[in-house]
Design a protein around this nucleic acid. Structure first.
Lengths: 218, 218
DNA sequence: ACCTGAACACCGTTCAAGT
DNA sequence: ACCTGAACACCGTTCAAGT
């Protein structure tokens, strides 16, 4: 089966315009950035009339939300891969691998990261996005709890550590796509490297120094 | 002098259309959000023709950049005020006050924070914005250096602590305006409170535990 | 059941012409 | 010197009409 042609020589259009639209939008984001994604341009790329997409998406936001769900899946996949590659079972090292994967993906796919992290353009309340987010959050909390149970953390609220590290990697990634590394002394090419080092240092900072009281001694 | 009328009964328009446009845009952002700011709508509010703003701003981006500079001034003012209110000279407490002021302003002025932190809509390379940013960064580094000099920090790179804390507050503020606190267990009304607590906990985490080796012992 | 194509009310931006 | 107002090429979205 050719991936282009379809039933009936494509009478009107092939079977799955919806999927084609999302794919085209995803590619357009990647090639030209978020601003370049107009419903009309996506329709043009797929070869349908300007009104056709509205048979599948209520509005531009709904289309971009579908794009964001796809991008979010890729992000989660990258995080998952990074976690898997971390051979150790040390909860803090696993947690670190998650942050590491997040940063690397965000820096490697700035346009897609922009889509998943920009309200105003997507519907954050979509159940799809919500679920995906909740999953990652639960995973992070789990490993952090385990670290605490092993007495590895400085005293402090676990949720605050999780939220803080989430905010940290999110903030570094956003600073990058928002072009805010330029004024940060080091050249932007080192932004990923710097961000990884920052994550590292903060993961170290929250750990109990040997011999000091920990969050939850065994 | 009335603040509305002007020279010659306002022949075409008053003396400073440029300033009026920025003021109107700033208010529009506040009232209706960033998406609502179109050049035409701003012109309408000020009572001039659609083309008039282009005599003062090259394009929409230039107008929004001027808005961002104004908003950034307010942010820096808030940070400055917060720092001043911190009576103590303890460098870490001063640094904390800076982060605190940043968070409070961002949460109280989400639309304005969005403008100063959204590339794609403003020109980040504008000298105005760059200078303002550099100033804050230099201040933060200074206080952190002082903390290190007093042996108050855990061993680690100073710039990484500064960048990390910047990324942290930036990330928390962005998570808020991006609507990402909703899925975080606690209700969004507590987002500021939670963020302040997180900052607090991380400021504690980077401090040398008494009796442990510090970054730069006295 | 799904798509077309014209239509409407918006944009950003340009530029002659007015004062 | 500064603004108007018409114009152009775009949008998002709707909806009758086509197949």
């Amino acid at each position: 089966m050719s991936s282009e042609a379809s039933p009936e020589e494509r009478g009107y259009h092939h079977g799955d315009l919806r999927r084609s639209l999302v794919a085209a939008a995803l590619q357009l984001v990647e090639e030209q950035g978020l601003e370049a994604v107009s419903v009309r341009e996506v329709a043009r790329r797929v070869g349908v009339s300007p009104g056709a997409p509205f048979r599948h998406f209520e509005n531009r936001t709904a289309l971009l939300t579908a794009v964001a769900e796809e991008a979010q899946d890729r992000l989660l996949q990258a995080v998952e891969d990074s976690r898997r590659q971390q051979a150790s079972n040390d909860p803090l090292e696993v947690f670190h691998a998650i942050g590491d994967g997040f940063l690397r993906w965000a820096f490697a796919n700035p346009a897609h990261f922009l889509v998943v992290s920009t309200r105003s353009v997507i519907d954050y309340d979509s159940p799809g996005l919500r679920e995906r987010n909740d999953g990652l959050r639960a995973t992070m909390r789990q490993w952090m709890e385990q670290a605490a149970a092993q007495g590895r953390l400085k005293p402090g609220d676990i949720d605050r550590y999780v939220l803080g590290l989430r905010g940290l990697v999110y903030g570094l990634a956003r600073m990058h796509i928002d072009g805010q590394f330029a004024s940060w002394g080091r050249p932007p090419q080192h932004a990923l490297e710097d961000s990884l080092a920052v994550l590292d240092q903060f993961m170290l900072a929250i750990q109990a120094s040997p011999g000091s009281p920990a969050s939850s001694p065994p």
